[in-house]
């Protein structure tokens, strides 16, 4: 689908979790139809930002608009797919049973076969999720996020625990989805994945440090690699 304007606009976002100010005045814009990578040291607030975008995080201030509608609006629940950092599927059901349940909830039963193929779990579709390996379980969780063919996919470290071959396949899938018009926001700690993003958002300690293409971020720090740029930008001065 063709969207005019950015997919996500975050302005002045503040989030308090427990008694910590976890996001302090975050501003950013995420273009539609691109794969945007969300990077930053562990604990900097990536998951919190994604939860806020999906509309499941209580926020203390600021605004988030998804396709020009405030985040968390009921109509967005059909348009946004979310994969949580820890796999959120039922361990005591098989892969297919999990997918059938979520597909029934979304009224998209036609998609079950497709998403199993997309994440390459065909061989394990009748295995109980609790008996799967870590990587297989996270792919089951990813499959659920893909069920509704959402316009925006928010994926929190979707490739953790996957081998390089699978990672490459999934990133190819992400780009195919983006080419078809889906907007993707993907968090990662892996630099070669960051390299595959169209744009990057770099966070540190609850602040948005930098935005740009991988090449722009490298150029800004005059660093030879993205990893060096990441270190230069996020190292506490």
């Amino acid at each position: 689908m063709s969207e005019t304007g950015p997919a996500i606009v975050v302005s002045g976002l503040r989030v308090i979790r427990g008694d910590r100010l976890v996001l302090r005045d975050v501003d950013c814009t995420i273009e539609a139809g691109l794969v945007t990578g969300l990077l930053g040291p562990s604990g900097c607030g990536k998951t919190t930002l994604m939860r806020a975008v999906v509309g499941v995080q209580r926020v203390a201030g600021g605004a988030i608009h998804i396709f020009a509608v405030p985040a968390g609006t009921p109509e967005l629940r059909r348009r946004v797919g979310y994969m949580t950092q820890a796999p959120s599927v039922y361990g005591d059901l098989t892969v297919v049973e999990n997918l059938r349940y979520f597909a029934r909830v979304m009224d998209r039963r036609d998609r079950v076969r497709d998403v199993i193929e997309l994440v390459g779990l065909g061989e394990y579709e009748h295995s109980l999720v609790r008996d799967l390996s870590g990587g297989e379980r996270s792919r089951a969780s990813l499959a659920v996020a893909l069920l509704g063919e959402p316009d925006l996919l928010v994926l929190d470290e979707p490739t953790v625990g996957l081998d390089p071959l699978l990672r490459r396949e999934l990133w190819a899938t992400f780009h195919r989805l983006a080419d078809a018009g889906t907007t993707l926001l993907v968090s990662t700690h892996v630099m070669d994945e960051a390299e595959r993003c169209d744009r990057l958002l770099l966070m540190r300690e609850g602040n948005m440090l930098a935005e740009g293409t991988p090449a722009e971020l490298r150029a800004r720090t005059a660093a030879p690699t993205l990893e060096a740029a990441f270190v230069a930008l996020t190292e506490p001065r």
Partner: peptide
């Protein structure tokens, strides 16, 4: 605790 409730709450349910 398994995150499935969070997932369900982000769906049209």
């Amino acid at each position: 605790t398994s995150g499935t409730l969070e997932r369900l709450m982000s769906l049209p349910l």
